[in-house]
Design a protein around this nucleic acid. Structure first.
Lengths: 190, 190
DNA sequence: TAGGCCATGTAATGTGTTACATGATTAG
DNA sequence: CTAATCATGTAACACATTACATGGCCTA
């Protein structure tokens, strides 16, 4: 399961479930997400399997925190996972399914509205990723060849997001242009 | 649920569960997939809700076929779905998660092997999509502006697949080049 | 006659979301 | 005082995969 391995990956430093939820949002949010209600039982299971260990710590605010630490076995399992070759699953894009059947709406202006909406979504996600990229450049410079191994890998995943969403935004624009040609009245003969 | 709506969309012509599995592979496979064991109960549920109706038909080979047909309500529900604005969920890419934590493998040659493997996967999916595109061009010509509305929408989804996977393949190549620069011995001073 | 395709389905399990439940501390 | 944030968890439900079960027909 990917979530289990992602939690192992994030636990290079000890952290609580609550911390990990934040770490999710700050680091892997653009290719994975998880709710607290899923994180807590998953951590418990990982501890039962002795890939993690936990201790209770008093918290300055709120109830005690259960802080998890990676065990040797946990580190080994993370290693196995990353070395196991790419896990390529069948990705699901609900919005493409909608577009595929959009002629059922029987009005191309519906498609136009749909594509504008989609473009907005994608463009704002792209902007977020570019902001993260800007921050990385500001801190580590704009030459990834000089990054640490850790930084290099993280930058590479970010880059894939930027490139592939960038391609999708361009596709939205081209598709919108094609829709407008279809909607325009045909050229009158001279 | 997307699967329900996709089944409604595919049922422009009456079909059995078995047929629909094939239709999946032939049409929407690059952005959605489903197993027969999921399709059968879903069709049953849609019939209970009167979005579909079914009748048993003798089959030339094998057991009787349960053939489903779209009802008026089913058609209306499909329409509602496509008109409801793009459903953009958080997409999950397990292989990006692996890459993100790949420095845990402690050997950049592992990353290299991983990226080669990934590139192969993506390139072969891209090739499949281009083959489909070639077939469409052969039948309907290479000017999508002249396609029927139906054909236009279908071509647009195909195009997104080609563009976004194309961008990913390019990203693989650039990342592999960067890895090779890192692996190469540093240039000796003159 | 063995294996593949046609054809339907159930059961068990895995994975993920939403809603619910509880309660302390702190900033406005 | 009210809302947000900190902090943990359970329960119900939704969605998807894998394995199991059955059996006829056709081709190599």
């Amino acid at each position: 399961m990917s979530l289990e391995h992602i939690l192992l990956g994030l636990l290079q430093q000890p952290a609580s479930g609550y911390d990990l939820k934040d770490a999710f949002n700050e680091t892997v949010a653009h290719f994975w997400s998880a709710e607290l209600s899923q994180i807590y039982p998953t951590l418990k299971r990982l501890e039962e399997r002795e890939l993690l260990r936990s201790r209770l710590e008093p918290s300055p605010k709120g109830p005690d925190r259960r802080v998890y630490t990676l065990t040797g076995e946990g580190r080994a399992e993370l290693r196995r996972w990353v070395r196991g070759g790419p896990v390529v699953g069948a990705e699901r894009f609900a919005y493409l399914a909608q577009l595929y059947f959009m002629s059922a709406a029987d009005d191309l202006r519906e498609t136009r509205a749909f594509m504008m909406d989609l473009r907005d979504h994608l463009a704002s996600r792209l902007a977020e990723l570019r902001t993260i990229e800007g921050k990385i450049f500001a801190v580590h410079g704009d030459q990834p060849d000089r990054y640490s191994d850790d930084g290099f890998h993280r930058f590479a995943t970010l880059r894939m997001g930027i490139d592939s969403i960038g391609a999708k935004v361009t596709w939205c624009d081209l598709t919108l242009a094609a829709i407008d040609r279809r909607l325009a009245p045909s050229e009158p003969a001279p």
